[in-house]
Simulated assay, not measured.
Amino acid sequence: MSGSAKDPFALPAKLVPETKTGVVLDRLPPPRRKLDVSVYNFPDLTGQNKPNDNFAEFSRALTQGASAVLIDVLTKAGSGAWFNVVERNDLQPLLQERQIIQTTRAAAEGDNAPSLPPLRFAGILLEGGIIGYDSDETTGGIGANYLGIGADTQYRQDVITVALRAVSVQSGRVLASVTTTKTIYSVQVHSSAYMFAAIDQLLQAELGFTKNSPATLGVREGVQLAVYALIFEGVKNHLWEFKDRAAGDAFMRELEKNQEAAAIKIDVPKS
């Protein structure tokens, strides 16, 4: 057996855990027609490094692969019924591979070699990015000590802000725009106790742990909420519609009911 198989602390790889927002997004009723969309880039625009009170940290606080997260969320929306996502994020390898295929066919079959079908194009361009990361937005703690025995708890919350907009490729007009926020929490629990074992001997014991919410999962949920809200903005503005209007209306009412609790800020451009 390998060393990792014998390691009792080694955990197997697993799929990314689903979020509550992701479950709701996957259950969306299908649209009347699938939307052809493209994502060229979805960058981290915050420029924030990981917070550290002791030394300068050069690692980024947030994922630099948010475009991959957005593409994954789009392909799963409504169990894959909502979007046809065309590859634009890393287009050069795709074009190069198509050129290799065409060259190979021409070498094998000559001038009568069949051509590849044209690339699928998108009618809607999705743009935006991670526009905010507010660390230590709220901090606090509580603790007590009595006769050498005590415990304290400290917490911190950070806020991630994601912006997403749909742009018409034909006109360049911004069809809809949404901004969402996601709060991530960090908690530290520490306890200690001491007693005199003898006149000149002190026995002390400490115990503690720290729990940090994964920032990447926070970004994913913020993106999921943005896609969810963008779909409904398009429905409200008659840009696209549900195949089953009654089921769509039920989801619309649920979104409006929970809009304030979900902390969605929606900006719709004027026509």
Rank of each mutant, 00 (worst) to 15 (best):
Leu45Ile: 05
Ala56Ser: 08
Asp26Ile: 02
Gln102Glu: 15
Leu203Pro: 06
Leu125Glu: 13
Glu206Arg: 14
Glu256Arg: 04
His238Ser: 14
Arg120Asp: 01
Leu62Cys: 09
Arg33Lys: 12
Asp90Met: 14
Asp158Pro: 03
Glu221Val: 11
Val174Glu: 03
Ala250Asp: 00
Val69Asn: 10
Leu225Gly: 02
Val189Gln: 00
Lys20Ser: 00
Glu241Tyr: 15
Gly234Met: 06
Asp136Trp: 08
Gln201Val: 15
Gly47Trp: 10
Ala122Gln: 07
Ile131Lys: 04
Gly22Lys: 03
Ile142Gln: 06
Ser271Gln: 08
Ile101Gln: 14
Lys270Arg: 13
Lys270Trp: 13
Gly150Phe: 08
Ser115Asp: 05
Gln102Lys: 12
Gly234Gln: 05
Pro31Val: 03
Thr104Pro: 01
Ser186Arg: 13
His238Asp: 15
Asp90Asn: 15
Pro214Thr: 11
Ile184Gly: 00
Leu126Val: 10
Asn237Phe: 13
Leu70Asn: 08
Leu119Asn: 14
Val219Ser: 06
Pro269Gly: 04
Gly172Glu: 11
Pro17Arg: 01
Ala144Trp: 11
Leu25Asp: 04
Phe121Asp: 06
Phe242Pro: 00
Thr179Asn: 10
Tyr146Trp: 07
Pro29Asn: 02
Ser2Glu: 10
Gly65Cys: 00
Lys76Tyr: 00
Gly218Trp: 03
Trp240Asp: 03
Thr63Ala: 11
Thr104Asp: 09
Glu109Phe: 07
Ala215Leu: 13
Arg60Thr: 10
Thr104Trp: 03
Val16Trp: 05
Lys236Gln: 10
Thr19Trp: 00
Asp134Arg: 05
Gly80Ile: 06
Gln92Gly: 09
Met252Leu: 05
Ala108Pro: 07
Lys265Ala: 02
Phe42Arg: 04
Gln224Pro: 01
Lys50Tyr: 15
Lys20Asn: 02
Asp36Cys: 13
